[in-house]
Simulated scan of single mutants.
Amino acid sequence: MLKERELPLSALRAFAVAARSDSLSAAAEELGVTHGAVSKQVRLLEDWLGQQVFTREGRSVALTPYGSVLAEQLSQSFRNIEAACQYVRRRRSKAVLAVEAPSTFAMYFLMPRLKRFEKANPDLAVWISTRMTGQTPDVSSHDLLITRGGGDKIGGHSKASTLLLEEHLTPVCSLDLVQERTIEKPEDLLAFPLITSATRPGHWEAWLKKAGMRDHLFEGGHRFDHMFVAMHAVREGFGSIVAPKEFFPGKPEWRLVCPFPELVVKGEKYFAQPTSRADPRYLGRFLDWLRDEIRS
Rank of each mutant, 00 (worst) to 15 (best):
N121S: 13
R291K: 12
F192H: 03
V42F: 15
R131E: 00
E100V: 04
P201H: 10
D138I: 05
L124K: 14
V53R: 01
L283R: 00
L97V: 12
K153I: 10
D176A: 14
Q86D: 01
S93T: 05
L208C: 08
D188P: 04
P274S: 02
A106V: 07
L24W: 09
G150E: 06
A83T: 10
V234H: 03
W127C: 10
S60R: 14
V17C: 00
K115H: 11
R92V: 08
K210E: 11
R116L: 03
A16S: 03
G58M: 06
E268W: 14
D292G: 02
L24S: 01
A98D: 12
Y66A: 09
L208V: 03
A101V: 00
Y282W: 05
G221P: 05
T133A: 00
F247E: 07
R200F: 12
F78T: 07
A26H: 09
R148C: 02
L165V: 09
F54S: 04
D225W: 15
L31Q: 08
E268F: 15
K40E: 13
L163P: 03
A233Y: 06
T104C: 08
E29V: 08
P171E: 04
I183F: 13
P274T: 05
S103Y: 11
L9E: 04
D288P: 01
M107G: 09
S93K: 15
F105L: 06
A230N: 03
D22E: 07
T196C: 05
M227C: 02
S174C: 13
V126K: 04
R235H: 04
F247D: 07
P8W: 11
P201Y: 14
L97M: 14
R5G: 01
K185G: 07
P102E: 10
E219R: 02
E46P: 01
R200G: 08
D215F: 10
D176L: 13
A278Y: 10
R90A: 13
Y108L: 02
I146H: 07
I146N: 06
V17E: 03
H35Y: 15
L70E: 10
F228W: 14
W254I: 00
L24A: 06
E219G: 02
